[in-house]
Nucleic acid binder design. Structure first.
Length: 751
DNA sequence: GTAGGGTTAG
């Protein structure tokens, strides 16, 4: 065999020493035998430049690996080879080798068996794993510590927690390591409650805790506590850490920090962090991610800087966290810097960092950059796809969201509720923002609602059948139907909601309240609202706003008082609803007092929306001067929506008093004026007979290439969408024309 | 053979 006489306990492998073809590295040899080996080698190879040094354990493994290969080449199977195949995860070769060994009548020992069991920790290898388990039982190796823990880990990695537990229970003795393996088996499969129960049961029973509990145990249990709904178990494990004198352990400090920060106790986590004598990178990462998870993005960035000042090099995990922080801050410049840094450090294809980049760019509305980051990610996960789809959802790009979804299905991935939520949100016209005009446009062209709703259902219904629809994806669908005012489909969905048992989920119920209001079915909406067992502020806001929009202003204001009386604190959105209701009913004095109440009693400073409501209310009731004062008071920047609303209100009023010319001109000085501002102004001038001004406005519109988008409204009845434009006189189906006639005459009669 | 830190929505 290679002409080398191998002394007992010594093995050789070729090294890569410079200048020597035969640089051999002997291993597992004492320094006394070192000289003998050197002499032997020099004689054998005839190279006096050979370096010989005593190797450590790593070298010994490598030497055994080499020895195995040499033996293999000479036709004799070697048990060591099996070990190395297993260690390298070369499972196919390992099992081939195992059968060869058996033909030679050789048996793997405990160490090799445990390594073999280690490579069966994949669902597709479970059969081999169970075969090994049988062999282990036959050989009576089941109580061997290495083997026992490997089997527990193997079953847990194959998602067979029950098998792991059964094996664990059947063993004659408890040992600390396999007990730890069982705890982490539960954790691996998302069963943190079982992990905690197993721990506390045994700790309660065993008198000598130290025999069973080590630092590994505690850090696993702390991880389970981090995921628990209550902080209580975490606190008592912290007590145990102190009692068993493990406070010096940096890993446990990290586990404690994570446990506290996951429960929002960032101060406690920070205390542990600051008291830590020697911090490592994981500790920094834990603290930074704790802040990021609770949106303390600035604090996270401060720590990120401090860690670098203290000489720590951020890794891909650090970068993932700070990218999330930059997304939260919507700080595109910071995000781009971090992008460059991620690239420089070679983490650009990391699935987590890459996905964080996708998310950051989508949140900063840079969808092209998000797409690019997505393309570069290696091993795109479902989360990567979800981040991209959510990005498209933010942009309202339903088509691309759909393409990404199809792509995901092609990769044989299974969409989760989050995928559906993103996809379904992308159908929503609200997601279109300014582009909601595009949505109206699509409706006017007469293609779309059916197509879009068709897509919507074809995505949603399979998830209902497979029971993967949850409250979030369902509320996303409700939101879309609300935006489309699709009444029939909405009612259908309501029955589905009841069948799925989701009617008490607060997001779903609130969505239903909103949907019925938007479809004009305010009674149905109120019924859902009343049936809600749990109402948060959003639910109240939706109902108050919805009542106002449907002309039920008194009821809306009553509800506001009820909300305050039972102790739910109104917020800025509540007051938009309240003021809108006052505006709708022309209740100018009430509006004024609610506007004042908002600041004086609830400490809410009015936003542009509140001002817009008030201005509109004042103008509609002819109090132009007051309205103009308020407009000038509210902000230095002219807001086009507010000015438009003001001037439109002036038109409604048709009073003798006219808005000042300055007000009109100010409208066009606002940033991002749109065609409707021009049209409004031209109408105002026309009513006053100021024809030169009208002509001037029309010509500047032509110069700017603006054309008037007629506003429209629609309602979906019996799967058919009916579109109306302002002042439309014809094109209605007969039954609608009759109803319209009726409504019209009633309105006349009512003045 | 057993530990701690990361990404997606509402």
């Amino acid at each position: 065999m290679w002409g080398v006489r191998v002394a007992s306990r010594a093995l050789f492998l070729p090294g890569n020493g410079a200048g020597s073809k035969f640089h051999w590295k002997p291993c597992i040899c004492s320094s006394a035998s070192k000289q003998i080996f050197r002499d032997e080698l020099v004689t054998l190879i005839g190279d006096p430049s050979i370096h010989v040094h005593a190797g450590g354990l790593g070298d010994s493994l490598a030497a055994r690996d080499m020895f195995g290969r040499m033996a293999d080449q000479h036709g004799a199977p070697c048990v060591s080879t099996l070990y190395f195949h297993a260690k390298r995860g070369e499972d196919a070769q390992a099992f081939m080798h195992l059968s060869r060994l058996r033909r030679w009548g050789l048996k793997p020992n405990e160490v090799i068996l445990s390594a073999l069991v280690g490579i069966c920790g994949r669902p597709n290898r479970i059969d081999h794993g169970m075969g090994l388990h049988c062999f282990i039982l036959k050989q009576g190796f089941q109580d061997h510590h290495f083997i026992a823990s490997s089997l527990v880990v193997m079953y847990s990695k194959c998602a067979r927690v029950d098998s792991a537990r059964r094996f664990f229970e059947e063993r004659a003795v408890y040992d600390c390591i396999s007990w730890n393996s069982m705890i982490s088996a539960y954790l691996r499969n998302g069963m943190s409650k079982e992990a905690i129960d197993l721990f506390s049961d045994a700790v309660g029973r065993v008198s000598d805790r130290l025999a069973l509990v080590n630092n590994f145990t505690l850090s696993s249990v702390l991880k389970a506590c981090a995921l628990s709904g209550s902080i209580r178990p975490g606190r008592s494990v912290h007590g145990l850490v102190v009692k068993l004198d493990f406070e010096w352990d940096v890993v446990l400090a990290g586990s404690l920090m994570t446990m506290y920060s996951k429960h929002g106790c960032l101060g406690r986590a920070r205390l542990i962090f600051e008291k830590l004598g020697e911090r490592d990178l994981v500790a920094w990462n834990a603290m930074i991610s704790g802040y990021v998870q609770f949106s303390h993005d600035e604090e996270a960035m401060k720590l990120f800087q401090r860690m670098q000042l203290e000489g720590f090099l951020p890794n891909e995990i650090t970068l993932t966290s700070v990218l999330k922080a930059s997304a939260g801050l919507e700080d595109i410049d910071l995000g781009k810097c971090l992008h460059a840094y991620v690239t420089k450090r070679g983490h650009i294809s990391d699935s987590f960092a890459g996905t964080a980049l996708v998310d950051m760019y989508s949140k900063c509305s840079e969808i092209k950059d998000a797409e690019h980051a997505f393309m570069v990610v290696r091993g795109r996960s479902l989360v990567s796809f979800n981040a991209l789809i959510s990005g498209y959802c933010l942009m309202g790009d339903h088509e691309r969201a759909m393409l990404a979804y199809i792509n995901l299905l092609k990769q044989a991935m299974r969409p989760d509720p989050l995928t559906l939520t993103g996809l379904l949100c992308s159908c929503s016209s609200k997601a279109l923002g300014e582009g909601s005009q595009a949505h109206c446009h699509a409706i006017k062209l007469g293609f779309d609602s059916d197509i879009s709703l068709g897509i919507l259902w074809s995505v949603f219904m399979p998830s209902v059948a497979s029971q993967t629809a949850d409250e979030f994806s369902t509320s996303a669908v409700i939101k879309v139907l609300a935006d489309w005012a699709a009444a029939e489909q909405g009612k259908h969905l309501h029955t589905l909601v009841i069948k799925m048992g989701l009617e008490s989920a607060v997001f779903v119920a609130t969505g239903l309240v909103d949907m019925y209001c938007k479809c004009g079915m305010v009674e149905d909406s109120f019924k859902v609202f009343v049936s809600m067992s749990l109402r948060n502020d959003v639910a109240w806001n939706v109902m108050i706003t919805g009542l106002g929009h449907n002309g039920r202003c008194t009821k809306s204001l009553e509800l506001f008082h009820e909300m305050v009386d039972i102790g739910v604190t109104p917020n800025a959105v509540t007051f938009i609803g309240v003021l809108a209701a006052c505006n709708h009913a022309g209740l100018v004095d009430e509006g004024r007092s609610y506007f004042d109440l908002m600041g004086s009693r609830f400490g809410i400073s009015p936003s542009i929306e509140h001002y817009t409501c008030m201005v509109s209310l004042l103008a509609r009731t002819g109090r132009f001067h007051e309205a103009e004062l308020l407009m000038n008071a509210c902000s230095s920047l002219p807001d086009p929506v507010m000015w438009r609303s003001f001037l439109a209100s002036c038109r409604v009023r048709r009073s003798e008093e006219r808005p000042s010319r300055a007000s009109k001109e100010r409208l066009l000085s606002a940033p991002d004026v749109c065609s409707s501002s021009y049209v409004l102004l031209s109408n105002l001038f026309a009513e006053e007979g100021l024809w030169p001004e009208v002509a001037e406005i029309r010509s500047s519109m032509r110069e700017l290439g603006m054309s008037k988008e007629p506003g429209c409204s629609w309602i979906a009845v019996r799967n058919e969408t009916h579109v109306f434009t302002a002042e439309q006189k014809s094109g209605f189906p007969d039954h609608m024309r009759a109803t319209l006639f009726l409504v019209h005459s009633e309105m006349r009669a009512g003045g």
